[in-house]
């Protein structure tokens, strides 16, 4: 019976799913050729304050998406922290790896800043910059730094919520000014987007590094004990 399921029913089901997907793709590409969303999105990129189309979609057209995505990231981190304290870290690495890490971590932080700035007009942006910061944290954790380069517990908590916080504050400030939630006025769009992206970069980097270390951060009072 189990063999019947795994050798007959399962392949049949998988082939059926694949067939439906191919059929849906065929219908989507041969269907009516009206105005595509892409043309509309590309035509209005100059009005969004940045010239990289992906960044303009992420932080202008679909800013709600990005806000909720940062909230999902925060929720995942809270889930990891709620599962108990962190396991003991790695043994301190030997001289060569320590030396390489001492060179690489500042370079990664510099590259993250570059990515963040360049994201306005070239490939890059908050997610890539945050990933580089997170990679710096992972590298420090692998080299045996128990804190993975993360700050103490109160600062860590503030940094983790920074992305959502800056996003919401900008949205609420725009509402107070009489515009919609996250409807940027054209002149200020570039700077508002850069402000939000900076907050998001720090939050993503800290969240990824803390997720790699795993476990709830030690409280300041607990951390003082050896």
């Amino acid at each position: 019976m189990t063999r019947f399921v795994s050798w007959v029913l399962l392949p049949l089901g998988l082939v059926a799913i694949a067939g439906v997907l191919v059929w849906a793709f065929y219908l989507a590409t041969t269907g009516e050729t009206g105005a595509r969303l892409a043309d509309l999105a590309l035509a209005r990129v100059p009005e969004t304050g940045v010239s990289n189309p992906v960044t303009s979609v992420l932080l202008n057209y679909r800013a709600y998406d990005t806000l909720l995505e940062l909230a999902v990231l925060l929720a995942a981190l809270l889930g990891i922290w709620s599962l108990g304290p962190a396991a003991p870290g790695f043994q301190r690495a030997a001289e060569v790896l320590q030396g390489m890490v001492a060179w690489f971590v500042p370079l990664l932080i510099l590259a993250a800043g570059h990515m963040l700035w360049v994201g306005a007009y070239a490939p890059g942006g908050a997610f890539q910059a945050g990933a580089l910061l997170g990679a710096a944290g992972v590298m420090l954790a692998l080299a045996g730094h128990p804190s993975a380069g993360l700050p103490s517990e109160p600062v860590l908590r503030l940094l983790a919520i920074l992305g959502v916080l800056v996003f919401c504050l900008v949205g609420l400030a725009l509402m107070v000014l009489g515009l919609g939630f996250l409807t940027y006025p054209p002149g200020m769009a570039k700077w508002l987007i850069l402000l939000i992206e900076t907050g998001a970069t720090l939050a993503i980097g800290v969240t990824l590094a803390a997720a790699y270390r795993g476990g709830r951060p030690a409280r300041a009072s607990e951390g003082a004990a050896p």
């Binding site: 490939p123 890539q128 990933a131 997170g134 992972v138 990824l208």
Partner: peptide
Amino acid sequence: DLALAEAAIGAGLSGAL
């Protein structure tokens, strides 16, 4: 943009985890 993010996050960080 996606290639950068996938190499850093999808391959690098998921792989490390």
